[in-house]
């Protein structure tokens, strides 16, 4: 026991001399176990989406005759349909698995689009200040003043309902908060002497923006992006629920819930399973984002 402790202490000491930022990060992760839960959910979700053809039991758009009772109502959970069948006899479980693809694509791609717009505008706004800052921030205020879901709904209606258009709509409407947060971070980071020092070394303005300032504000950006993923998954579900998102027969959790609403009295599994999946996905990303925020908060820093 004591020998073990001693060797652990020696190992710890020699390691701490060469502790990288990554090691520090993993050390502080231990203080926030909920990150593991969030990370695990997100990980499982990604597995579902990537290996959907392997994990699914049936083709998600095949309408099985044995999925419907004689009176045309869907059959409940059984060996053949673990989560039951839907109103046209498709396997809810397989649709759920494939539906994770839509949610993740929207979550990641739409977030990436708004991240790109928001970060760039925030960097420019915060760094240059003055008139440029005023213009960009007023545009941001305008974007933030729109009710997100309604505006996305209108935009998708105009562009036409498809996954691509949902991505575009969510992406180009969702950057407001990011631009603001990034701007605020830039305002504080640009006053550090190392920014001046980089300029004194002959670095150009784009270089200072993207190689000096951006790496220093990556923490809050990552947190914000993680939380934005869960929000965007919800918005996509909302759009699909309202019928303008991903079109049937392609499965998406939103349109599955919508289809289940009509039959909820005699076939509750139609609504419950995609609802729970949505809940878990959002919970997973939120736990991950919150946890990352706690870990990256300098007040909780481990040295």
């Amino acid at each position: 026991m004591s020998v073990q402790n001693a060797s652990a202490a020696i190992g710890g000491a020699s390691k701490s001399q060469k502790k990288s930022r990554g090691a520090l990060f993993w050390k502080s992760v231990r203080k926030f176990p909920m990150v593991y839960v969030g990370g695990l959910i997100v990980f499982l979700l990604v597995i579902c989406a990537v290996f959907a053809p392997v994990l699914a039991l049936h083709n998600p758009i095949t309408q099985y005759q044995n999925g419907l009772h004689m009176d045309g109502t869907p059959v409940g959970p059984s060996k053949f349909f673990p989560f039951g069948a839907d109103d046209v006899g498709r396997d809810v479980y397989s649709r759920l698995i494939y539906g994770s693809r839509v949610s993740l694509i929207v979550g990641f791609v739409a977030t990436a689009i708004s991240l790109l717009i928001g970060t760039t505008l925030g960097l420019i706004s915060g760094y240059f200040g003055g008139f440029i800052d005023t213009v960009i921030m007023r545009i941001t205020d305008t974007i933030l003043a729109f009710p997100f879901l309604l505006f996305a709904l209108a935009l998708v209606t105009i562009l036409g309902s498809s996954l691509t258009n949902v991505l575009i709509a969510i992406g180009i409407l969702g950057w407001g908060v990011m631009a603001r947060v990034v701007r605020g971070q830039v305002l504080s980071v640009k006053e550090f002497e190392y920014v001046q020092a980089a300029r004194a070394l002959g670095a150009s303005t784009p270089r200072i923006l993207f190689r000096v300032i951006l790496p220093n504000i990556l923490g809050p950006i990552i947190v914000l992006a993680t939380l934005a993923v869960s929000q965007n998954i919800l918005v996509e579900a909302g759009l699909s629920f309202l019928g303008v998102g991903v079109q049937p027969p392609t499965p998406s959790w939103g349109n599955m819930i919508y289809a289940g609403v009509q039959d909820y009295q005699f076939a509750p599994w139609l609504m419950v399973y995609p609802g729970v999946a949505l809940l878990l996905a959002v919970l997973g990303f939120n736990l991950l984002g919150d946890g990352l925020r706690d870990i990256l908060d300098p007040r909780n820093a481990t040295h």
Partner: peptide, 18 residues
């Protein structure tokens, strides 16, 4: 800058990019 004329600043704690 940095090539012909270089500069050292007062605060070594904040002059390096963390």
């Amino acid at each position: 800058r940095g090539n012909e004329i270089s500069m050292i600043f007062q605060e070594p704690m904040t002059s390096l990019n963390p």
